[in-house]
Amino acid sequence: MLRTAPSLARTARAFVGAGAILVLLVGCTAAAGEHPTPPSFLSPSPADTATASPALQPEGTAEDNLPYFRAIAEGVWASEQRAEGRAYIDALVAAGFDRTAMQVTPDQTTVGNPVESLQFSVRWGEESCLVGQVGPSTGQVVAVVMPQLAEGRCLVGTTRPIDW
């Protein structure tokens, strides 16, 4: 059977169209937010994962615990509760930080608008504080170690009671 040029062109267009549809279907099979699993040679080994994941170090310094503090804050920042001070405090408590050593600024301004910057802290030892800041003014989690202020405080200005 001999095909003519127009017949071959139609066949080629059909293959190209089918290929495009196949690519679209394959691209749509993963749910939104899902990422394919990388090949095992690109994934960290269990030994690498153990050293890469920060953890609370109760006997460590504030500097030792900064990566863990930051990781907890980044988890909340990535959630729908990113603008809620309570969410940061609750996550830090769940991660093992001492609630009685914490401070948090209000979520809203005095006129009821969302704040541009939300701060939260954990007093660490007798001299240091882990301080986090998030909000539209930063666009990301900022976490630092700062010296304690007078009377063991970490944050300047008005903070809200952590009474929940």
Results as ranks from 00 to 15, higher is better:
residue 72 I to W: 00
residue 73 A to V: 01
residue 74 E to L: 07
residue 74 E to Q: 15
residue 74 E to H: 11
residue 74 E to N: 10
residue 75 G to I: 03
residue 75 G to R: 09
residue 76 V to F: 05
residue 76 V to H: 04
residue 77 W to G: 02
residue 77 W to F: 15
residue 80 E to W: 11
residue 81 Q to D: 15
residue 81 Q to V: 03
residue 81 Q to T: 11
residue 83 A to S: 14
residue 83 A to K: 12
residue 84 E to Q: 13
residue 84 E to C: 05
residue 84 E to Y: 14
residue 84 E to F: 12
residue 85 G to V: 10
residue 85 G to R: 09
residue 86 R to E: 07
residue 87 A to Q: 08
residue 89 I to N: 07
residue 90 D to R: 07
residue 91 A to V: 00
residue 92 L to A: 01
residue 92 L to P: 01
residue 93 V to F: 00
residue 93 V to H: 01
residue 96 G to I: 03
residue 96 G to V: 08
residue 98 D to T: 07
residue 99 R to F: 07
residue 100 T to A: 14
residue 100 T to M: 06
residue 100 T to W: 03
residue 101 A to D: 08
residue 102 M to I: 05
residue 104 V to I: 11
residue 104 V to G: 03
residue 105 T to C: 09
residue 106 P to C: 09
residue 106 P to W: 11
residue 107 D to E: 04
residue 107 D to G: 03
residue 107 D to M: 11
residue 107 D to N: 15
residue 109 T to Y: 11
residue 110 T to W: 05
residue 110 T to D: 15
residue 111 V to M: 09
residue 111 V to W: 11
residue 112 G to T: 05
residue 113 N to V: 04
residue 114 P to H: 13
residue 114 P to D: 14
residue 114 P to K: 10
residue 116 E to H: 10
residue 116 E to N: 14
residue 117 S to W: 05
residue 117 S to R: 15
residue 117 S to A: 12
residue 117 S to D: 08
residue 118 L to G: 04
residue 119 Q to M: 03
residue 119 Q to P: 02
residue 122 V to T: 13
residue 122 V to R: 09
residue 123 R to G: 08
residue 125 G to V: 12
residue 125 G to K: 09
residue 127 E to V: 11
residue 127 E to W: 01
residue 127 E to P: 00
residue 127 E to T: 14
residue 127 E to G: 06
residue 128 S to D: 15
residue 128 S to W: 09
residue 128 S to F: 02
residue 129 C to F: 08
residue 129 C to L: 05
residue 130 L to D: 07
residue 130 L to Y: 08
residue 130 L to A: 09
residue 131 V to C: 00
residue 131 V to I: 13
residue 131 V to N: 00
residue 131 V to W: 01
residue 131 V to G: 01
residue 132 G to L: 00
residue 132 G to S: 02
residue 133 Q to C: 06
residue 134 V to W: 04
residue 134 V to S: 02
residue 134 V to F: 06
residue 134 V to Q: 02
residue 136 P to Q: 13
residue 137 S to D: 11
residue 138 T to G: 10
residue 138 T to K: 12
residue 138 T to M: 10
residue 138 T to W: 11
residue 138 T to S: 13
residue 139 G to F: 13
residue 139 G to N: 13
residue 140 Q to D: 15
residue 140 Q to M: 07
residue 140 Q to A: 15
residue 140 Q to W: 07
residue 141 V to I: 04
residue 141 V to Q: 01
residue 141 V to T: 01
